[in-house]
Design a protein around this nucleic acid. Structure first.
Length: 242
DNA sequence: AAAGTTCCCAACCGCAACTCT
DNA sequence: CAGAGTTGCGGTTGGGAACTT
């Protein structure tokens, strides 16, 4: 497969985006959508390659993106899913509404890796990080709950109660077997074919669960409540094949 | 206050998968 | 079915901000 020439084309701008460029991209997508990224720069008048436009939009300008720091719960979700998926950032991002794969990747490399390391150094559990570092063997569903809950070693007493809740959730996550992810990823693939985006997929999940009524035990729906999504994952094992 | 170092994140690169003709 | 074009993903990097000496 011959790679299509991209930014090396003369005349295309690289580097940080200016506010004007952002505005052009936003207004163009708002009025025309982004059917063809490659044609978008030409049509919108931007001196950027389509790839750069797509990245700028998906990682920064998209209004669906949740800005700001990651919550403790989000970080724990990343750690947990990472231990299951390996470096499947896109798969993890699909399960953290409003977060991008790039963002998650950055958080992992800047915070979570260290956090895990610090945690593992202070406990008897030092093997997991080594396994992760050793270039990601196939992700496995069998891991110790202490691997995750040990992260962040010096917690305040208020955080301790939160940690115990997280530990409980994480313990539940361990119960999800590989077939869940196989099926979920298959759903992702099918959803892509149907042009569903990840949010629609998640909505599909939640409405499906509501239909099944077992969401009754999952608490109230709140887009920003990571516990909600965690519970969705936990109960997804019972999801009938779509 | 200045120089050096570390941290963080937006953006780029290259590959692979997917879609279209 | 093959090949060209397009999109998505993960790895990596450049440079500004924050911190330390």
């Amino acid at each position: 497969m011959v790679r299509a020439p991209c930014c090396e084309k003369m005349g295309l701008k690289k580097g940080p985006w200016t506010a004007e460029e952002d505005q052009i991209l936003i207004s163009y997508i708002q009025s025309h959508g982004h059917g063809n990224w490659r044609a978008l720069p030409k049509l919108s008048g931007l001196l950027r390659c389509g790839k750069s436009c797509r990245l700028r939009w998906t990682n920064y300008l998209n209004p669906d993106i949740k800005r700001g720091n990651f919550t403790r719960e989000e970080e724990d979700v990343i750690i947990t899913l990472h231990q299951m998926h390996g470096y499947g950032w896109a798969a993890i991002a699909a399960r953290l509404p409003g977060r991008t794969d790039n963002e998650i990747k950055n958080v992992w490399h800047t915070h979570l890796k260290k956090r895990l390391k610090t945690g593992t150094e202070t406990t008897q559990e030092s093997t997991r990080e080594n396994q992760i570092e050793s270039k990601e063997e196939k992700p496995t569903q069998s891991f110790s709950s202490t691997d995750v809950s040990c992260s962040g070693t010096t917690e305040s007493s208020t955080e301790n109660s939160q940690n115990s809740m997280e530990s409980s959730l994480i313990h539940d996550i361990q119960e999800i077997d590989e077939s869940f992810w196989t099926e979920t990823l298959q759903m992702d693939s099918n959803a892509k074919k149907n042009s569903m985006d990840s949010m629609e997929l998640m909505e599909g999940f939640s409405s499906k669960f509501r239909d099944e009524t077992f969401l009754l035990s999952a608490g109230s729906r709140d887009e920003d409540d990571m516990s909600y999504w965690l519970r969705i994952f936990l109960q997804a094992e019972e999801l009938p094949k779509i």
